[in-house]
Write a protein that binds this DNA or RNA. Structure first.
Lengths: 344, 344
DNA sequence: CAGAGGTGTTAAAACGTTTCAGGAGGTGCC
DNA sequence: GGCACCTCCTGAAACGTTTTAACACCTCTG
């Protein structure tokens, strides 16, 4: 049957007052062992489960934090989510995971919902750079940590990875391996990460100061496998092909790689490929993929720690902007063979 | 500043009673347009946000449903989650997504949390077959739908895909293409899906009735890329290799495929590979992967519909066991070339 | 034996909503 | 003018907890 069993039922059963039951639940040490046992007995006998709504209403301290990501299908975010969940559940918080799917409307709806739930705090990768939704949350007194979206806003925490440095790492590596004609397959400029990674790539070329190296940007509408495939097809159709491709994320790179492999283009001899994110599949691709790794779980953990710290002591909390350093993982797809070209 | 603005503040501001504000919020049609506007004005001016805890406490009707999956990193589950979220948010429900990570302890903790939240219902892929956690939820009057875990339990709904049929589809296809020595790379027997898919594979061989075809099972500890790689290495080390590999999921298959491609084994000429789940990466692999597709989003949608229907009218609800049919997607990795072997 | 200082328990007041019985005021009908 | 019937609004009770002040009882101290 249903279970409308409340703390009051437990109290009568154990022949104590409701206050005592509440104490057993929340501060067991203040109640005498004998009564404590009696109450616990009643609880299990009746199958009592605390009603969190009432608890929250009275105590004012919620037990959930919200996490709003751009795309649950993206392994990057699922890893971040895992990190968040780890530290959150250690602190006794539930995580409400929301998927904005890069839609401002969905984001707004989710944010509204989280506000109504009176969550402890919200970790969010905002859809737009204007941060309208984020501002509204803050105005309602909910602490917010920006995820993977660096900012200078003084009244917000943020946790991100230095995308510009990541782009620079990738292209510097390609130049060092001797590649000259590099195409960056990039997402649309409205995506913050895409812009930064491209800037880093430009930095690399500039710093190398070699006049022969050229970097071109090829913009695709979405950061997924299909877009990568189409981009590769376009590159193959050219009369002079690039000798290296740097992709704004691994999904693009896998799409590119597949088309190249199937077209018989040797990777990396004829064309190198570098991705970004180092998702699990990167290492398992037909040609293991060089990629820029981000400390994904750690991003999640750090963000969760920040939001919990802020809500614990809002007064003396100092907003921090954590910027992790990316790391280049070199694999076969971009390693110039030691010997000069084989065959001829 | 914080926002301890309650319905009462709105009421005084709009010079009405709290009851009227509540009516504006929940049944706007019963209040006169003029007052309605006045109240709405006050709401936006004060930045009022409903406190869901209080609402739930009083009304007794929660607005969230729980979803407990084995692995958020697995694309199968993220697609299911997407389906769940779609129909749930249409019905005005939030989705609390929990990751049990195949750990009974984590599952128990999440289930406890969901029970305390008094969620509308729970969709769960149970870690164990004994369904202890599920029973406890039901005892507390929370409706449960089993996800991807077929059952005959008469007091539960379930939504799943016919894994046995899927296994049979895959192996029947391999046999039809002329493959003879088939190895199934499978997960441990405690995983329900692994058992069923293997049974289906056995069915296929039996039905084909061809005495020359052999099916062997190679059990690996986990259903991931690394396990697939190790399995393929073991197969390659043998003196007589199989001519086809059927993997219990796509992650395994991708691992196998990678090792084969790198070792120079031609796929499918020398060895065919078939996966299971048809994740996005399957089509984008070096050799596009034949796989068994499951209607993932539809599983999620159907499950959400069932749990919502059940909680709407628990009395006349009839528990259903929905079993979707899998579909074989044939790609290059298992298509026997029309001509006999090339070369020689 | 009075008072001080524990310890363990209780009763009642909150928390912010929804809901419901009922009241005020207006309109139409006989 | 009395009555019935609307429409719109109000006031208060209830939901299940946590929290706090107060109380009862015991033990120790002087």
């Amino acid at each position: 049957m249903g279970s409308p069993v409340s703390i009051r039922d437990v109290a009568t059963r154990a022949k104590v007052s409701v206050g005592t039951v509440s104490n057993v639940l929340n501060r067991p040490e203040v109640v005498a062992p004998a009564t404590r046992e009696r109450v616990l007995g009643a609880i299990t006998e009746l199958g009592f489960v605390r009603n969190d709504a009432a608890r929250q209403l009275r105590s004012g301290t919620p037990r959930a934090i919200g996490l709003v990501v751009l795309d649950v299908g993206n392994p990057f975010f699922t890893d971040v989510a895992r990190g968040v969940e780890d530290t959150a559940s250690e602190a006794g918080h539930a995580v409400i995971l929301c998927n904005s799917d890069e839609s401002a409307r969905r984001e707004a709806r989710h944010v509204e919902l989280l506000a109504e739930q009176r969550v402890h705090g919200v970790l969010i990768t905002p859809v737009d750079t204007d941060l309208a939704a984020v501002r509204r949350l803050r105005d309602r007194g909910i602490s917010v940590v920006l995820l993977d979206h660096p900012t200078d806003e003084p009244d917000l925490c943020s946790v991100a990875v230095d995308d510009r440095q990541g782009g620079e790492l990738a292209v510097t590596h390609l130049l060092a391996e001797g590649y000259q004609r590099i195409v960056m397959v990039n997402g649309p400029a409205r995506i913050h990460q895409a812009r930064q990674r491209h800037r880093g790539a430009v930095d690399a070329v500039r710093k190398a100061g070699r006049s022969r190296a050229v970097l071109e940007e090829l913009v695709v509408p979405a950061l997924n496998v299909a877009s990568g495939q189409r981009a590769a097809e376009r590159l193959l159709a050219r009369s002079t092909r690039p000798d290296a491709v740097f992709c704004a994320n691994d999904l693009l790179a896998l799409g590119v790689l597949q088309v190249l492999v199937r077209a018989g283009v040797r990777v990396p001899e004829e064309m190198a490929v570098v991705g970004y994110d180092d998702i699990d599949f990167a290492a398992a691709a037909a040609v293991p993929l060089t990629s820029v790794r981000q400390p994904r779980q750690q991003i999640g953990r750090t963000a969760a720690e920040l939001v919990i710290a802020e809500t614990m002591s809002p007064a003396e909390h100092e907003h921090r902007h954590v910027l992790f350093a990316p790391e280049l993982v070199v694999r076969e797809s971009s390693r110039r063979p030691v010997r000069p070209r084989r065959g001829r």
